[in-house]
Computed example of a mutant assay.
Amino acid sequence: MTFADAKVVADGDRWTLILIRELPRPPAEVWLALVDPARLDRWAPFSADRSLSDTGPATLTMVDGDERTALPAVVHRAEPPRLLEYTWGEDLLRWELEPSGTGTRLTLRHTLADRDLDAMVAAGWHLCADVLQRLLAGEAVRAIRGRDAMNHGWPELRDRYAARFAGS
């Protein structure tokens, strides 16, 4: 699977990575995968201490094998099933869901403080979105996180995204 579109745009003194993926399930199902801690834990790079369907503080914990790194988060907007926006550490993530045929067009706008991370972050979200796609199709899958991503093509994806973003 690939992102239908992937680019990096200047956003003041920060950079926004924009990734678009077509998913074959309706927005309401995709929404649940974005906000429900049990579902997030099956595809995202982090676990959540609570549902992200309500605004307010949360903790998103990066998972890398046995290592855990808790980062503060704040859900700023939760408008089911079309918009979810939260901070994660110093980053801002905005998930936009639009009906697309019988499925959903999912747009992630991940605002980064450091442009040098764009290809690495894109490769990580690419793998996560692949898992999400399979999860939504009903497959028994598990998240690809941290060092485990190296065994699932992350270095090659990072290099492809770096080449793609080089002219941005």
Rank of each mutant, 00 (worst) to 15 (best):
L132A: 00
R109E: 15
D114L: 08
R115T: 00
R142A: 13
H126R: 00
V75H: 04
T16K: 03
A140T: 13
E139A: 11
G89Q: 02
H76C: 01
K7E: 15
G146V: 03
S47G: 15
G103L: 05
D54Y: 09
L32R: 12
P57F: 01
A78E: 05
E96G: 07
V141N: 01
T69G: 09
R105H: 10
D13P: 08
L23M: 08
W31D: 04
I144T: 08
S51V: 07
D5H: 13
G103W: 07
R50T: 13
L23R: 05
D91F: 00
F3D: 07
I144C: 05
P27Q: 02
S53K: 12
A122Q: 03
T102R: 15
D36E: 15
R142P: 04
T104G: 06
R42G: 10
T104Y: 02
E98T: 13
V63W: 08
A48Y: 06
L106R: 06
V74I: 11
T59H: 05
G56V: 10
T87H: 01
W125E: 00
L84S: 04
D91R: 02
S100T: 10
L17E: 09
I20N: 11
W95M: 08
E22W: 07
D148I: 07
R42N: 08
V74M: 12
D41F: 00
P72H: 13
